[in-house]
Design a protein around this nucleic acid. Structure first.
Lengths: 299, 299
DNA sequence: TATCTGCGATACTATTTCGGCATTGCTAGT
DNA sequence: ACTAGCAATGCCGAAATAGTATCGCAGATA
């Protein structure tokens, strides 16, 4: 039983005779006759009653009409499904992202562009800090991540620079810092600082700390927050000031004033798009293509 | 996408490499390589990542594994289903039968043999009198019937003689007829007779009446019954006597005594097995074969 | 580092399958 | 009796498929 035979069979059934079918399918009548006979021999069942005036379906033939249509349909469905999977029009894609950077228009635009271009892809976005993202990229729970890295050369990962962030000072709107803004890091020596845990994002933490050491600034930590949102909430509550990624200031937050400082602008915090090398998912390839398209490529 | 290609594809997947698969399916390795490539070209999708050490499935390839198995399975199911339909091992068969003759061991044996030999056939038996059977055979609501016919040559029907029935007298157990049995039809001249409607089974009716006329017997009808069961019930109730097919006496009925009369034995009531000529149902052919096997063939 | 081994890819040849053409045989309608 | 339309058959060329020999490549081995 071959697809060609089923196709010819349906043509004969629909045309009512081999001759009529041969005109419709543009195949000579003897070829059709033979394929029908081969099909019957394969099935060990007569499908037509031959008559000098056309052919008539047998009981088995009538059953095959439906089955053949289903089978050919099934094939067509598989074909289109595989094409969609292979070209990344459908499939599954898991992306990790640091919540803070959903606020960066470039990143948000990337995600919404992807959703719009490939609506057939089950695109899951997981808000995760850099450390967990790295772990999940390695054990394949994530296909890609938007995160901080200590270097662009990660073993087993490929990367693209997405955005170069900096730091910014967040102060309570109702505080002395809001009224008389500091201009240098040294002005913050006496300030109570809301700080993060190193464990959550060691790369970010170490980078920031190294920068402060270069400027001989030692923060006086009075409070810890688990993530950026928690930290900013505490700032809004007046518990202290915080030094956070500049991306945080893209969206206004009630009770908080963001203040730029030259020394914080100086601190490059590169944000990377990364994926496991060898991940051949076409859906991922399309996302990478969008990344490369949005910003000129880089190692 | 051809079945052969799917088969080879699964072999490669299961064997882990083209070479291993070629040993398993007894096809040279280049042939497999080529068919896999053709499959990929047809689907416009790469299915494997080629490596010097074997091949690895892509995302689309992984999806095709399941689909290909389903498709090949589907084909196998169709094949076996069609074979069963074509050989009459499955399918549907509607048989009409006069209720009275379910009591004839030959007929009952035929039905139970068929059920036992072909349990896969949806075998429906409709209790119908001869007239309705004939009508339903013609309009295809019945595939075959066990009935009375006025001749073995029926236009559009083929027939086999199943059983040659006769007539018998049924009298109430508690009556003068039971005590002093009649020996000739003439003895029944004064008897009240429970009679049937001609319309229900005209062949039977006319044949019986012609027989009576040959013996110059005129029944004194005092009651009509719609079918044999109704007639016998009325006899059992003592309303009168009845002349019924001898088959009725195969099973005892409370309140009724069956009496043979030479003049009733003389009346041949041939019971026919009949089907529409041109009905090519294999399930029917098997039933016909059983009929021919049970009793030597006849026109 | 040189060699070996097992893999997939390629080029070429042989075989099988398939389609087209011409023809025949058959039956229903005229 | 004749014709028209159908399926079946035989034969030939074309296309698809499989087989053989060989190559290039990468990982394992010494």
């Amino acid at each position: 039983m071959e697809f060609r035979q089923l196709h010819y069979f349906l043509a004969v059934v629909e045309a009512g005779s081999v001759s009529a079918a041969s005109r419709r399918v543009h195949v000579a009548q003897p070829a059709l006759t033979r394929q029908i006979r081969l099909l019957e021999e394969d099935l060990e069942t007569r499908l037509f009653d031959r008559h000098a005036r056309g052919m008539q379906l047998t009981v088995a033939g009538r059953a095959l009409v439906e089955e053949a249509r289903e089978l050919l349909d099934h094939r067509a469905r598989i074909k289109s499904r595989l094409y969609a999977l292979g070209s990344g029009l459908s499939g599954k894609l898991s992306l990790g992202i640091t919540v803070t950077h959903l606020w960066v228009p470039q990143v948000a635009g990337l995600l919404s562009d992807y959703r719009q271009c490939y609506p057939g892809v089950a695109f899951e976005v997981f808000p995760l800090l850099s450390g967990p993202q790295l772990e999940r990229l390695r054990d394949r729970r994530l296909d890609a991540g938007v995160l901080y890295l200590d270097s662009d050369a990660q073993p087993g990962l490929e990367t693209r620079l997405l955005h170069c962030d900096h730091l910014i000072l967040a102060v309570p709107e109702a505080s002395q810092w809001s009224d008389s803004p500091p201009t240098r890091l040294a002005d913050l020596e006496d300030a109570g600082i809301v700080w993060g845990f190193r464990q959550a994002s060691p790369v970010y933490y170490d980078r920031m700390l190294a920068h402060f050491q270069r400027h001989a600034f030692t923060p006086r930590v009075i409070q810890y927050g688990a993530d950026n949102i928690a930290i900013l909430s505490m700032v809004a509550a007046g518990l202290g000031v915080a030094i956070v990624p500049a991306a945080s200031s893209w969206h206004p937050m009630p009770g908080i004033r963001f203040l730029r400082l030259p020394e914080l602008d100086d601190c490059d915090m590169p944000l990377w798009f990364a994926w496991r090398s060898g991940n051949d998912s076409p859906a991922l390839a399309n996302l990478i293509a969008l990344v490369d398209e949005g910003s000129p490529p880089r190692g």
